[in-house]
Design a protein around this nucleic acid. Structure first.
Length: 469
RNA sequence: GGCCCCAUCGUCUAGCGGUUUAGGACGCCGGCCUCUCACGCCGGUAACACGGGUUCGAAUCCCGUUGGGGUCACCA
């Protein structure tokens, strides 16, 4: 029986969830879902000074928006201090760790000295063999092996060997007894049965230390997979100066979470030439074998194009949920009904974001469209009064309000007036929307419904008559 | 600086020794479609960082160079 894959996402709540973090969360979540495994959420808040409740909430909010759910947790490291303490004590007892009373200043000095000699700045092992007892200012250090190699068997990069001489006796517990990152992660991953760790490659140099900790604790080393980082357009690490970094900022800009997920996954993972993936397709096809090894540049234009494609392909009903907040932000109170769905359908092919869609939806929800001055001057001129009136009367007299019948009416008007379709459509467009740009005439009329169409046409006719002097 | 990672069009990438005149996508540039704007469709632009090997044959394997990135905390 093969064991179930158990992955995790362990953000530290020191800010919002950024794009890189979101991507590793998605990778882990996807891998768990793909394999029928479990996905654990853990908040790494051992750094009390930098961790905030706001950040925790922001992370939950971002994950929820992305549609990433977890099977276990959230665990908080701050609530697991006793567990770390027990493991630290065990390491001291079995000789894998020791108390060190060297002051921070003293350690700084040895680092400076080592640097001056051209060596790697590191702790020199002063207290390593002293077998010191606990004292108030003592930290606990891990006793790293002095020779040999530790190799990371990375599932996406292959074996990476580190000489143990590169590692110094790193601190695993602060003088106040709280655990340091490497210790806490390893203890958590052991006790939570995590067997697959997918994370950013900025963690790669931590990995040998963690492997040593696993071994010292007598635990099975999990599979590690280090994914490349997400870079800004200038190919440097993504940071604030590159603009929006926070995942939720993209929600505000009108992006569809599925597009965001699709984009982030495709940045570093591939399935042949396929670019567009639904959520289910991703779960079905995602694997570790096709994760790339080189860093990727975040490309907002591609995200935008992908977003437009997701909007085009989604059902109006599912889009309605996402669109609602943007409508409200514009003061539009729309009900979640068939009318809204019809409106959305006409807007789908011409909206790259929900912001654009909400902008385009405005005229559907007003009592009377506001005429754009230039548009009205150009198209609602008296010379079209007759055909427009004919059209209006015909529409109001229609038996069934169908596209076919509307087309017939237009044909009749074209015949009697001798005008081309465009000559008539443009004034109708202005009458219905107030603008010269809109969805197609017939689909729009159908979405608006006969009542609104007739009343707007009548208003336009009145406007034209009034201006005929 | 030590250690580690990486290297195909501007960007995301396919390619896992021969089927490649290196494919797709975004962007950009033409054109078609057309009731506006879009969508869609057709075409074009553009890359294997460099140098050595290995091999009958290399974008694909090895080494080096160069260039980028990461990491060296009582942060995570």
């Amino acid at each position: 029986m093969s064991q179930q894959i158990i992955t995790r996402f362990p953000p530290s709540p020191t800010g919002y969830l950024h794009l890189g973090g979101a991507r590793t969360a998605i990778f882990n979540w996807l891998y768990a879902r793909h394999t029928g495994g479990r996905f654990v959420l853990r908040i790494e808040d051992t750094d009390v000074a930098r961790s905030t409740k706001e950040s925790v909430d922001a992370i939950f909010e971002a994950l929820e928006w992305l549609g990433i759910d977890w099977d276990e947790g959230p665990y908080f490291q701050s609530e697991r201090l006793d567990i770390y303490k027990a493991h630290i004590d065990r390491l001291i007892e079995n000789g894998h760790a020791y108390y060190c009373t060297c002051s921070p200043d003293a350690v700084d000095r040895m680092r400076e000295a080592a640097k001056a000699r051209g060596d790697k700045p590191r702790y020199d092992g002063t207290c390593r063999e002293k077998n010191l007892p606990w004292t108030k200012d003592a930290v606990v250090r891990f006793k790293s092996p002095l020779a040999g190699n530790t190799v990371v068997e990375d599932v996406i990069r292959g074996d990476i060997a580190f000489s143990n001489t590169e590692l110094d006796d790193f601190i695993i517990a602060r003088s106040d007894g709280s655990p340091m990152y490497n210790l806490a992660v390893v203890v958590d991953d052991i006790t939570m049965n995590i067997n697959t760790i997918i994370r950013g490659d900025d963690h790669i140099s931590n990995t040998p230390k963690q492997i040593l900790l696993y071994q010292a604790l007598g635990a099975t080393v999990p599979d590690f997979g280090h994914v490349p980082m997400v870079l800004g357009p200038d190919k440097s690490r993504l940071s604030k100066r590159h603009g929006a970094m926070s995942v939720t900022a993209y929600r505000e800009m009108g992006f569809h979470p599925d597009a965001m997920v699709n984009f982030l996954v495709r940045l570093g993972w591939s399935h042949g030439d396929q670019e567009f993936f639904t959520r289910d397709e991703l779960i079905e096809k995602f694997n570790l074998e096709h994760i790339g090894r080189s860093a990727g540049v975040f490309n907002p234009e591609k995200l935008l194009a992908l977003n437009a494609e997701h909007i085009r392909n989604a059902s109006p009903a599912s889009l309605a949920l996402h669109l609602m907040p943007f409508l409200q932000a514009k003061g539009i109170s729309a009900a979640e009904d068939a009318y809204l769905h019809g409106v959305i359908e006409t807007l789908q092919p011409r909206s790259k974001t929900f912001v654009e869609m909400a902008d385009g939806a405005g005229f559907y929800f007003v009592e009377k469209p506001v005429y754009d001055e230039k548009a009205a001057a150009k198209f609602l001129k008296p010379d079209l009064l007759v055909p427009m009136k004919q059209l209006t009367d015909a529409v109001s007299a229609m038996e069934a309000f169908t596209e076919k019948d509307l087309e017939d009416i237009f044909k009749q008007v074209m015949e009697t007036s001798g005008l081309g379709f465009g000559k008539i459509a443009q004034p109708v467009r202005v009458a219905l929307t107030g603008k010269t740009v809109s969805p197609g005439i017939f689909e729009m009329m159908l979405a608006l419904g006969r009542e609104k169409v007739v009343s707007r046409l009548r208003d336009a006719v009145a406007h034209m008559a009034q201006n005929s002097g």
